[in-house]
């Protein structure tokens, strides 16, 4: 009975099958093209990537060296001083100090330093590239039109995808970790810098023009200072994203706290994973509050405090 009733549907399925199934078109192979493009880059521009790798590696070693020779208590004191300046609250200051102290108690002080060196170098590079690019983007409509979809893609692409070309071009270790983090953390600072400059009060920007500012004078003496709080919010975002990338980038051999998390996943060690994870959270909180303190004081200075 059933089969008789289903017969017309089956007949339809057979007849329509060429339309229902997505056709295979052999000559469009984007994955293949990308693969060969990356291979081509690797073969022909290896000198460039070697150079970049050496530069980043040098920066990492330098930063790590500074962090290593700094006594643990000095870092805690410095963070607490910065925390006091940013928050003016004894409770917050003690909290930031306690968080760092806990990371040390977990036995993660060296790993934290290692992670921090990757985060710091990634952030420095992001800002070196992102701030000027954001300014350029604000000044040129063409750059804006081209960059917007690119930035959208960079931000929505799953971060793991960046690991693959980073490894191919730069090998394993902390340098590709910096590269992948850079790609992931770059968009916010670019976007917010451009947004901030474009959204400076139009009368204020007009005033700069009306008094006969050159383009550079208007930019550096009026629009960038006026945009500073929002730009700083972009910097904060970028730092946060760099911290968030720590675990992901440990998958390509970057040591540090992220690797601890990865190991504890593989070995199902809940406690170890929690300690490493909470350490990353502490780092994130401390950096976030400190940079937000800078944002607040910029806002206060330019009278945009709500």
């Amino acid at each position: 009975m059933d089969s008789i009733l289903l017969l017309p549907a089956r007949l339809m399925a057979v007849l329509l099958s060429p339309w229902l199934k997505f056709p295979e078109i052999p000559f469009i192979d984007i994955a293949g093209w990308i693969d060969s493009a990356v291979r081509w880059l690797k073969e022909n521009l290896s000198w460039l990537f070697d150079f970049i790798r050496n530069v980043i590696d040098g920066m990492l070693s330098g930063t790590a060296a500074v962090l290593e020779i700094m006594p643990w208590w000095l870092l805690i004191v410095l963070v607490m001083v910065a925390g006091w300046l940013a928050s003016r609250s004894i409770r917050s200051t003690l909290l930031y100090g306690a968080m760092l102290f806990l990371i040390g108690l977990f036995g993660y002080w060296e790993l934290m330093n290692y992670t921090l060196s990757i985060v710091i170098v990634s952030v420095i590079l992001s800002l070196l590239l992102g701030l000027p690019y954001g300014i350029w983007m604000a000044e040129s409509e063409k750059v804006r039109t081209i960059s917007t979809p690119l930035l959208d893609t960079m931000q929505t692409m799953p971060s793991f995808v960046y690991l693959i070309p980073a490894v191919i071009l730069f090998g394993l270790g902390r340098v590709p970790a910096v590269i992948a983090t850079l790609v992931y953390a770059l968009p916010p600072v670019i976007r917010l810098t451009s947004h901030a400059i474009l959204n400076v009060d139009s009368e204020t920007a007009e005033a700069a023009q009306a008094f006969g500012c050159t383009r550079m004078q208007s930019l550096w003496q009026v629009r960038i200072p006026q945009a500073a709080p929002t730009i700083m919010a972009g910097v904060n975002q970028t730092i946060m994203m760099a911290v968030a990338m720590v675990v992901t980038s440990s998958m390509i051999g970057a040591k540090g706290l992220g690797e601890e998390v990865l190991i504890s996943i593989q070995r199902m060690e809940v406690g170890r994973g929690f300690e490493a994870g909470i350490s990353i959270v502490f780092i994130a909180i401390v950096i976030d509050r400190l940079t937000q303190g800078i944002t607040r004081s910029l806002k206060k200075k330019s009278g945009k405090e709500d």
Partner: peptide
């Protein structure tokens, strides 16, 4: 010339 603006357009920084 110089201009005076409706919402002052002062440089708040």
């Amino acid at each position: 010339t110089a201009m005076v603006f409706q919402n002052f357009a002062l440089l708040s920084h």
